[in-house]
């Protein structure tokens, strides 16, 4: 029900900010979504879509952080391992 999934904006149509629509590619399946709530979004951006509405733009820099964090944990683990 609350499923919302990321997809890539492949095209945008309409100028009226309230009815602006985009075609979104979800790993190969393309669907329409209303872009009224993400006025800042451009073609090529990733958006989180729920029931035909883009709710937010995915921030790539933030998306990387979890992997950087995991890398740190790994390094710490390796440092600790010989001592333990």
């Amino acid at each position: 029900m609350c499923l919302a999934i990321p997809g890539k904006v492949v095209s945008i149509s309409g100028d009226d900010p309230l009815t602006r629509m985009g075609r979104i590619n979800f790993s190969g399946i393309v669907k329409e979504a209303c872009l009224a709530y993400v006025p800042e979004v451009n073609v090529g951006d990733y958006v989180i879509v729920h029931v035909g509405f883009a709710l937010s733009k995915v921030d790539e820099a933030e998306a990387q952080k979890v992997f950087e964090y995991l890398k740190q944990i790994g390094e710490l683990g390796e440092l600790e391992a010989p001592a333990g």
Partner: peptide, 10 residues
């Protein structure tokens, strides 16, 4: 019209 805050914008 059911749903949480997630669905309310739609």
């Amino acid at each position: 019209g059911v749903g949480f805050e997630t669905t309310a914008p739609a």
